[in-house]
Nucleic acid binder design. Structure first.
Lengths: 344, 344
DNA sequence: CTGAAAGCGCTAACAC
DNA sequence: GTGTTAGCGCTTTCAG
């Protein structure tokens, strides 16, 4: 037998359907139907039952409902942290993406289950899926998990990943046109007469690799030779990226422009450059990526490649619901645009 | 009888405990115990069962578990939107708070259920509670819902609100020392010789009211008379706040400083001032509130009152877990500090 | 140590 | 139209 395990934490009512049924003088099924708005139950009775439930603050228990219906009306939003276990959810891009996704999901009367996971332990994704806590999954960033995603995607359809489309991929992605973004950035810099253009950021994750590819294509088109000495690997966080850029500056490699993987890295570069006595954009012109609020209000305002997260989030959620309905929705590329401001 | 309702969306395995039991040649109870790490089951058998579950990708169904255990291992994080129904989760303060809370909750092996709600429909909070989707609730901002929160708090203990402590409050809050923040801001401005100090922001929600109260106390202490003409009501969003400040400027009221309810409003003021040909800080010195990333990297970098959201989030989650354990944890005030930068 | 069985609260097929 | 009833998948008491 179950004892309420009431350790002192008080419980409000804990009504169940049976209680409402008793009050209304009907059976449980009738209450269930009435609350579901089933038109089999005549409107007056339905209203009366709803009324009783409402005055007593009764709401259907979602655990029970989910178990019975095998659906949770919940979408899992997953933030995979590739490397650092203790990493915070603090990156403005992630945060904005979470906000946009939450908006879109709420609009469809689904709940959002936020999952911060260490995406290095094998089986992390399978575990989330099998726990049956969500009807569909949205993963923000494919990180280094291409293989894991591919494996899972074969058997689990209701899943959409934010990230780059890459050859041999069997999962559904929505992502910005990273290559075009890289090209646009370099074209802008080249148009301002810059020839020694550095690339700031990681190149391992697929999105980063594509921005890097765009950077190289941009150089080609501008007739500028690629110089590996101008590729500066940096972490994603502002502080660490700043240090990496400072270290690069200390090496004394000549350069007059930089294309950063993200606005955060670009702004970090602002700091390092200023500390080294170099001005933006005169000494070094800088183009970022994302167009987070930080970019618009930076000093100087940052020229950047805008990712349309509103469209991106909407596309992710649209595709996810189509997949949840059994459709086989395709991957989608979101166009990017250059936002010219003062830094380049 | 139930038909799987398979509308084409494929299902991966959908194993249950019974399947694992069969494979292991034991009963369901034994599997349940083994997976729970119950030491009644001898270690070798336990390991073997765990092994089988793992290779088959089996994970306990959380809906069933929650129903049986009457607990969800989930914390609901609620963002009440007071006014605008269609409002986005885009405010950097909210977003950062969500991120911090998610970090703290994840640390404790609980899941985060994000709830964006229109906090005007009566019973919104009761509905969330009664749906039994979370073991505890964290509400970001008391908004205009003081009464609703009070009513609910009497019967429902595991709930903590981010916001101001106000007289007669029966719910548990964690919040910054808003009054002190207002005083610090005005003291800073007064110390720089400013006498015509405007207040930018709403004054309805309790937190805003307290910052306003601090502003008035600060004026008193500096021997500056309060002038209602310098109180500028503004919305919370950057664009709308900018318009409100622009309208204020158009009125031609003389002022040489401003204390803004938030960094977002302060940065919006930067824009309006610049458009009106006024410089910051020379013509108008500005102090914000929050210390979001935007503040540090603004043009000019924004002098602001820093809210320690890391401590705040940790305190909220700590208190919540204590309340979930039946303890009667008290409200907490988080100290603020002035972060001097260039805008004032 | 292990298993049988009850039941968490709900929905819906099936009878009436 | 409405009620009875059989589970959804799990945990835990109780019996052995």
């Amino acid at each position: 037998m179950i004892r309420p395990a009431s350790g002192g934490a008080s419980e409000p009512s804990r009504l169940k359907m049976a209680d409402i049924a008793r009050m209304a003088g009907v059976s449980i099924s009738t209450v269930s139907r009435a609350l579901a708005g089933n038109s089999l139950i005549p409107k007056p009775l339905r209203d009366q039952i709803v009324e009783i439930a409402q005055t007593h603050g009764y709401v259907v228990n979602q655990s029970a409902r989910s178990l019975r219906l095998r659906k949770t009306d919940t979408i899992g939003v997953i933030i995979p942290l590739a490397h650092e276990a203790g990493q915070l959810i603090s990156d403005p891009f992630f945060l904005e993406m979470v906000g946009r996704l939450a908006d879109e999901i709420t609009l469809r009367d689904y709940s959002v289950l936020l999952n911060k996971v260490i995406a290095t332990e094998p089986g992390w994704l399978e575990r989330i899926i099998q726990s049956h806590r969500a009807d569909g999954l949205l993963v923000i960033g494919q990180s280094t998990q291409h293989e894991a995603l591919n494996t899972v995607a074969d058997a689990y359809r209701p899943m959409v990943i934010w990230g780059a489309q890459i050859p041999g991929q069997r999962y559904c992605t929505v992502g910005s046109d990273n290559i075009e973004g890289g090209r646009l950035a370099v074209a802008r810099l080249a148009a301002r007469g810059r020839r020694r253009i550095a690339f700031l950021g990681a190149v391992d994750a697929p999105e980063a690799a594509q921005r890097f590819e765009g950077y190289r294509q941009g150089l080609d088109r501008a007739g500028i030779a690629f110089d590996p000495a101008l590729v500066v690997p940096t972490p994603y966080t502002m502080d660490e990226a700043g240090q990496a850029v400072a270290a690069f500056l200390a090496r004394g490699v000549a350069f007059d422009a930089a294309f950063a993987f993200s606005d955060v890295i670009a702004v970090a570069a602002f700091g390092a450059l200023k500390a080294a006595g170099r001005s933006v954009p005169d000494d070094v012109a800088v183009v970022g990526f994302d167009d987070v609020p930080l970019a618009r209000h930076g000093a100087p305002p940052l020229t950047t490649i805008r990712q349309d997260l509103r469209s991106g989030a909407r596309a992710m959620v649209d595709l996810l619901f189509r997949r949840m309905a059994g459709e086989d929705a395709p991957s989608t590329l979101i166009p990017v645009e250059l936002v010219p401001r003062d830094s380049a």
